[in-house]
Amino acid sequence: MNPLAQIPNFGQSIWLDYIRRKFIASGELKALIDNDNLRGVTSNPAIFEEAIAHSDDYVDIIQTLAKSGKSAEEIFLAIAIEDVQAAADLFKEVYKETNGLDGYVSLEVSPSLALDTEGTIKEARSSWQELDRPNVMIKIPGTKEGLPAITQVIADGINVNVTLLFGLERYREVAEAYVAGLEERDAKGERIDNIASVASFFLSRIDAMVDPMLEKICEEQNNRSLVAKQLIGKVAIASARVAYHIYKEVFESDRFKALEAKGAKPQRLLWASTSTKNPAYRDVMYIEALIGPNTVNTVPKDTLNAFRDHGVPADRLEAGIEEAQWVLYQLEDVVGIKLIDITKKLEEEGIQKFTKPFQSLMSVLEEKRAEGAVS
């Protein structure tokens, strides 16, 4: 049996981290839904930059919008909204069959708003209205400034995919921001049973930053070398397992149970950045290690194909929580690498990793817009 299609048997949903117009129109996305039990799609500025700037899928629509006087950013939003709507329509049945648990397609607010609370709220509301689909999510970065935006947007009844999460402390704050939003909405006497949210916890970038630091300590051949060697390639998965422990604390609490009694859904953890950056690692290790109940894993196409080919599905997420806590303890107290410093830096870099392709895309669209306006 197809290993991908078996993953939901263990309580996890697989979403695809990819979107492109031809991919939707050709039937390829529908085939993944039918054959692989794919349950959602995520997008980000880098994915859209790749799709729009490096394909001819969008030539006609860019020319049409340019002639109507649209700006580069307005053209991008029009394209992105059409693609997300088209993908969301393909997932309608998944959304119905799972009673609103899955079947979502995510659209990110502009990366320039990552540190702008009010700007994020305004764009989230605008995009939600434009998309006009119950099975879409607005992606909001899990920055300090994003926290009050998450609460407000959830209180507005908008589905949220919280992105760029690296740190455990910040993850707890995000989960509590979601609960606070539900409480605000409930206090207004409005429905909370039709709201969904995920918290996207990024994995491979943690190991990509920590591993070279550990390797350097190994080279120094001091009293920390042996422990450092044992931690290489283990920190991201350990962090994810501890994050899941926090998830259970928040969503099994009496505070949340009062909301759950009124139909509220827990904000599921979503494992993101799940393609391995180190070729020495098994290419599906971030999927295999973190399959477990009430979670999502969003994977790029190559990793999806790899798991279909040779993945081994099993419930492994809660195995070794003590070991995971021990890994993080050794990292900080024995080796001397402070995870909070790492995750803070990763958050800053993460914003840049989405800002740069977005700016590049705006430049490309500006050129194409100029060409289209005079053609």
Rank of each mutant, 00 (worst) to 15 (best):
residue 275 S to H: 02
residue 320 G to Y: 09
residue 280 A to H: 03
residue 235 V to W: 00
residue 264 A to P: 15
residue 263 G to C: 04
residue 314 A to K: 15
residue 273 S to E: 03
residue 250 V to N: 03
residue 251 F to S: 01
residue 306 A to L: 07
residue 308 R to K: 15
residue 243 A to V: 14
residue 320 G to K: 10
residue 282 R to Q: 11
residue 293 P to W: 06
residue 299 V to S: 04
residue 247 Y to F: 15
residue 315 D to V: 02
residue 257 K to N: 13
residue 298 T to N: 01
residue 285 M to L: 14
residue 264 A to S: 15
residue 315 D to M: 06
residue 288 E to D: 12
residue 232 I to A: 07
residue 255 R to M: 13
residue 265 K to Y: 09
residue 232 I to C: 04
residue 230 Q to V: 00
residue 310 H to I: 04
residue 296 V to Q: 01
residue 252 E to N: 14
residue 260 E to V: 01
residue 297 N to Y: 01
residue 293 P to N: 08
residue 309 D to C: 11
residue 302 D to Y: 13
residue 297 N to F: 03
residue 301 K to H: 14
residue 318 E to K: 00
residue 299 V to I: 12
residue 232 I to S: 05
residue 285 M to H: 10
residue 257 K to P: 02
residue 255 R to I: 08
residue 237 I to D: 01
residue 310 H to V: 08
residue 307 F to Q: 10
residue 302 D to P: 01
residue 307 F to G: 08
residue 233 G to M: 07
residue 272 A to S: 09
residue 288 E to H: 08
residue 287 I to Y: 00
residue 286 Y to E: 03
residue 255 R to H: 11
residue 246 I to D: 15
residue 241 R to M: 02
residue 244 Y to R: 08
residue 269 L to P: 09
residue 245 H to K: 15
residue 250 V to M: 09
residue 305 N to C: 06
residue 299 V to F: 00
residue 316 R to E: 04
residue 304 L to I: 13
residue 307 F to A: 13
residue 236 A to R: 09
residue 237 I to T: 12
residue 282 R to C: 11
residue 298 T to C: 01
residue 321 I to K: 08
residue 274 T to E: 12
residue 271 W to Y: 02
residue 263 G to N: 08
residue 305 N to I: 05
residue 264 A to F: 14
